[in-house]
Design a protein around this nucleic acid. Structure first.
Lengths: 227, 227
DNA sequence: CCGATGCTTCGACGCCGGGCGAAGCGTGCG
DNA sequence: CGCACGCTTCGCCCGGCGTCGAAGCATCGG
């Protein structure tokens, strides 16, 4: 009847527990089954069944390490689909102060699969173009190559893979583009490495901008409202 | 707990009946509730409930016309999400000869939300670049503007909207890009208008290449295996 | 080796939601 | 004006799936 089984993958995403797990994994990190059980708020046994389903559905992949099994998003296509879906999903009404704080933090800086998003992500995107580190065709300029290398970004490696090098990705909170693609992933890694951002404890995707990071972004000409 | 309600959208897509409805609507056309009930294979009452859910979830919108209510995909963002999801969804094992024929037809030519996809879509994409109607940055060249105007494509209108003008979109059967965006939608409309393609009866998305269309594509340098 | 830890499998339970037919409501045709 | 038609709402049934705890397997530490 149908060509692809849209319903099957939809059903996988349709369960709140599984959705929370996937949302956590959208940080780009691989998480152990136990941690995923905790973020989903279910018993380990329940989480295990969910993960088995996600696995056989091809949405996540697993790597066994010792007595832990680490799960992660199966590939860029899955990440892209989740991004696209999140853009459609309506924002939940904010209920508690805690959630409100969390939402504000997400709007300011978060990871989007494996790259930087939120107001910081958009600001960085704009700055990279403004400073001509990136051309309008989203290619790295000679000046940009030097500067990015100074940040510890391996531009050549980002260009190597099959994954798209760099592209704009519409930010679902800002409604303006941030940078996505292999290069964006490399930049994200480098900025975490350099301590410009740290992952907020207790939240899977929210990031905190450090003083070092704020100074670094300011040097690029990024204007950021405090938080 | 969560920022967006991924699960809510997923649950909407997770039901086979709703998925079939959405798949039909991915043709870009608006369909009446009764037709959607038929393609989903459920009673009108059941279909009505599904449509009410899709409506309140913001995935479809409705326009009342006489005693019919026509439903269609709510917007480009929803279409993009469904496309991205279809790329993740595994192809179902083909069970019947009829389905096999259908699958072959889909692989050859189909609509992807509102533009041309499948082998024909990829061939057209390649030809547009090859003939330099489109630049490598996916902008229409002067020669392309003239030629497309001859097809009846309103290039200026496509450029006007907020929607992206033209961009590559990875084809999930060919694993090579076809053309998407406002321009692609205009081209699709023009080619249907000119009778290069006709919608296959009984299938929502599959297209049949006419003799006129085959000749036209050949003139562009498209090489197409028979079917 | 034996216990602790992390994860999965199994069995049982409960509930949500998809299914239908009948009835209600609005529109269009004769 | 009244019947026919398209669609939705309502009440009901039932199957599927998410949930947990207990038990079964691996791996690591002593």
């Amino acid at each position: 009847m149908s060509d692809t089984d849209l319903a099957a993958v939809g059903a996988l995403l349709g369960d709140p527990s599984r959705a929370r797990m996937l949302d956590s994994l959208m940080s780009g990190r691989a998480l152990a089954a136990g941690e995923l059980a905790r973020v989903a708020g279910v018993a380990p046994s329940t989480a295990s069944e969910h993960l088995a389903r996600l696995l056989s559905g091809g949405l996540v992949e697993v790597v066994a390490q010792g007595r832990h099994r680490y799960y992660r998003i199966a590939g860029p296509a899955v990440g892209a689909a989740l991004e696209a879906l999140a853009r459609v999903a309506p924002a939940l009404p904010v209920r508690t102060l805690r959630e409100s704080g969390h939402a504000r933090a997400l709007g300011f800086a978060r990871t989007c699969y494996d790259h930087l998003a939120g107001r910081c992500g958009v600001a960085l995107h704009d700055a990279l173009l403004e400073q001509r580190w990136l051309s309008e065709a989203y290619d790295v300029t000679p000046a940009g190559a030097v500067a990015l290398a100074g940040w510890g970004v391996d531009v050549a490696a980002a260009r190597g893979g099959r994954r798209s090098f760099a592209r704009p990705c519409l930010d679902w909170t800002e409604r303006r583009p941030h940078l996505a693609g292999a290069l964006a992933a490399g930049i994200e890694t480098a900025l975490l490495e350099r301590g410009w951002f740290v992952r907020r404890s207790g939240s899977s995707r929210a990031l905190r901008l450090t003083e070092v990071g704020r100074a670094g972004l300011a040097e690029l000409g990024c204007e950021l409202t405090p938080a």
